[in-house]
């Protein structure tokens, strides 16, 4: 029972990070039907920028809390700029190209960003500066840290903010209208280019927040970290129904919990043959099962002509 509760807590933390990243995939897909495979790399750059900014400031003697805030701010702003540039440079010229073209471009951009990061930050694992004090809590035999609590709170607040933006503001209404019928939205006076750019910028900001949380949680970062994280967040978005915001959130949390429970019990289940380092297989089992039996995901609409 201890293990069960413990793994639920761990899964919730990991899952809320997946959810934030998954929202970036699902927003862009919802508006233009594109899987932006470079999104994981945006998250990675968010993490590495934070290391540089917060790390340097702390070394220069700035209080940790301030440095953390500065790191987060710079990281969010850089990722927003990066998301905007990606759309402007890589995807907008391909707006009317066959569907496969922007998809391949996305994979290409992902490789480009990884290599750029490798050039800037090097090949080695980097230590993420400790931005939060290590405080432990215990509840019903399960242990958790202040960092975990803050990750869940921040991602919850960020997602609430996003829902407010999408469902309660004019920009959000324009984004929903554009995702349903871009030609008519344009007739209503919506500048489609701006709405698409906004989806990229907002998704990248969420990715940056996720990137800072991943760094704080694992205390380590690397130029290739965005690949697996991005793939899992993509899985979460597919699980929830790609294009659907609530789906991405639920999908992220579910995937985190499935993974954590899988990692917690895989040793017992296989008689010790497979250990918890095999936890990655659960995400991909989920992806395969969803694609085989319910490709539209938990909340997805049955449109199907978007690839």
């Amino acid at each position: 029972m201890d293990i069960f509760l413990q793994q639920i807590i761990n899964g919730l933390v990991q899952g809320s990070i997946y959810a934030l990243v998954a929202l970036g995939y699902t927003m862009v897909y919802g508006i233009m039907g594109l899987i932006n495979f470079a999104h994981g790399e945006v998250v990675m750059i968010g993490t590495l920028v934070t290391i540089t900014v917060a790390g340097t400031l702390i070394k220069a003697g700035m209080p940790v809390a301030l440095a953390a805030l500065a790191g987060l701010t710079v990281s969010v702003l850089s990722c927003m700029a990066l998301g905007w540039s990606l759309e402007r440079i890589a995807y907008r010229p391909l707006r009317n190209a066959p569907r496969l073209t922007p998809l391949i471009t996305a994979i290409g951009m992902s490789i480009v960003l990884q290599n750029l990061a490798m050039i800037v930050w090097g090949r080695n694992y980097m230590t993420f500066p400790p931005l939060l004090p290590k405080i432990n809590f215990e509840f019903a035999g399960a242990h958790f840290t202040l960092i975990q609590v803050i990750i869940v709170l921040i991602s919850g607040a960020t997602m609430a903010g996003l829902l407010f933006l999408i469902y309660r503001t004019k920009l959000g209404m324009a984004m929903r209208a554009t995702s349903q019928n871009p030609a008519v939205a344009s007739l209503m006076g919506v500048n489609i280019n701006r709405v698409i750019a906004a989806a990229f910028v907002i998704g990248s900001a969420l990715g940056a927040v996720a990137g800072v949380m991943v760094g704080t949680y694992y205390e380590i970062a690397h130029y290739q970290m965005g690949f697996m994280l991005g793939l899992k967040a993509f899985t979460a978005a597919v699980l929830g129904g790609i294009g659907n915001l609530a789906g991405a959130m639920l999908g992220g949390v579910l995937l985190g919990i499935i993974e954590a429970l899988g990692a917690g019990y895989i040793g017992d289940l296989t008689g010790g043959f497979l250990g918890s380092h095999y936890q990655d297989i659960f995400a991909f089992i989920v992806l395969i099962v969803v694609l085989m039996f319910k490709p539209s995901g938990l909340f997805g609409e049955k449109t199907g002509d978007r690839a």
Binding site: R176, A177, Q180, N181, A183, V184, A185, L187
Partner: peptide, 11 residues
């Protein structure tokens, strides 16, 4: 008012 109405179905 476009041909085929063009309402936003999920608004």
């Amino acid at each position: 008012v476009p041909e085929g109405r063009g309402v936003f179905p999920r608004l």
